[in-house]
Design a protein around this nucleic acid. Sequence first.
RNA 1: GCGGCCGUGGCGAAGUGGUUAACGCACCGGAUUGUGGCUCCGGCAUACGUGGGUUCGAUCCCCACCGGUCGCCCCA
Length: 429
Amino acid sequence: MSYKAPRGTADVLPGDSRKWQWVEETIKQVCRRFHYEEIRTPLFEHTEVFQRGVGDTTDIVQKEMYTFEDRGGRSITLRPEGTAPVVRAYVEHKMYGQANQPAKLYYFAEMFRYERPQKGRMRQLNQFGVEVLGSADPAIDAEVIDLAMSCYREMGLTSLKLVINSLGDKESRENHRQALIEHFSPHKHELCSDCQMRLENNPLRVLDCKQDREHPAMRTAPSILDYLNVSSRDYFEQVKEYLDAIGIAYEVDKNLVRGLDYYNHTAFEIMSEAEGFGAITTLAGGGRYNGLAEELGGPSTPGIGFGMGLERLLMALDAENQKIPVDRSLEAYVVAVDNQAQKEAIRLVSTLRKNGIQADKDYLGKKMKGQFKAADRYQTKFVLIIGEDELKDQTVTVKEMSTGNQKTIDRDKLIDFMKEKCLGGKGHE
RNA sequence: GCGGCCGUGGCGAAGUGGUUAACGCACCGGAUUGUGGCUCCGGCAUACGUGGGUUCGAUCCCCACCGGUCGCCCCA
């Protein structure tokens, strides 16, 4: 009997984990530059946090959540997205009362969505995300978008498209919603079954339908941008001006609609335009959610953020042929020529490590040639040999693999020699 | 959730209704008794996704399931 990882999940093995580490490190550095702080929230929440936060009629809540009852009879849900939990934490810990506002937060977290898996669409997926709470300045919208784009740029991605839209404030949305219902209702029977439902629940989504895209009513449908009230329109204009000011190119797509209920005002999506990316091109998506904190029981607090799929980021790097700098070398490999030398070899490895030098040895009882072969495969910089002669003379033979040069050094001078060679007297970062 | 395609050792990849299921890579050992590559020689491995069915006999044909993949839906 053998087992497989459950459908839609994946193991990250050593070859790939280095890539993940690099991606995470790179993003964290960007976050530091933007002055954002990490927040970590639980893997699961009370189901209600998502029902109220994300919205009862959304696909995520209706058919994609991993929900179960725990032993205490509570309804628990594995987080399907990152914003609602962060806002919940912000409200719960009364972070609105803290001195430093707005709260500029980032997270790395795995999300869970019960969907049919595909490449770039997993049931357990990893996201990097950012949430800013407490500022309704359009400049922060631009900053958040800048942060997302900077992460991609930092990793060398170039084939990207930023799409933005405004969903307006509550009043604008309501007016638009009414207009949509009035516009589509006469054609209701001509629309696909999904759209007939959408027309009742969330008419905005009709605009996003791929099936009815060619329907004549689509072209004449009322655009949200025409229904923005003065303040909403003004807000959107300012966001665009700030984006222009920091040199970020974008495209306005009046049909860009986000799938979660909490969004208003600024909505954006970053897509890959790299060849062979298939149907799934969205790398990151986000927007403003000014009513969410209130919805989750807190004071009225503006917020904006995004989620970035890390599996898709790795795919994009791959599609653009961006090589991830992965250092697989090893500083020292200790070779024991025979059994007599084992003890000394083990002692030497341990001493090297205590002195900050990467060191390893053979544990398979290989002969000398096999040990060298292993050292070669590990891209070892120095092989340290201990054999009969070295034991007798209290020395170690050091071979620099790149040149093939080797010399014999007194045992008590070895560590200083290796430190000089490997650490340059400065030590590791 | 819907439709198409796919599933052979660790990886890649032939193949057939019937005695030991090719080959390449990788790995291990030897040629080279204290030294990496190449070459040559030898070796290795829980391999036909799972379960049924048809058949004298199935890795091959049929069905179901599982998994992957592509498209739809939706999204990261």
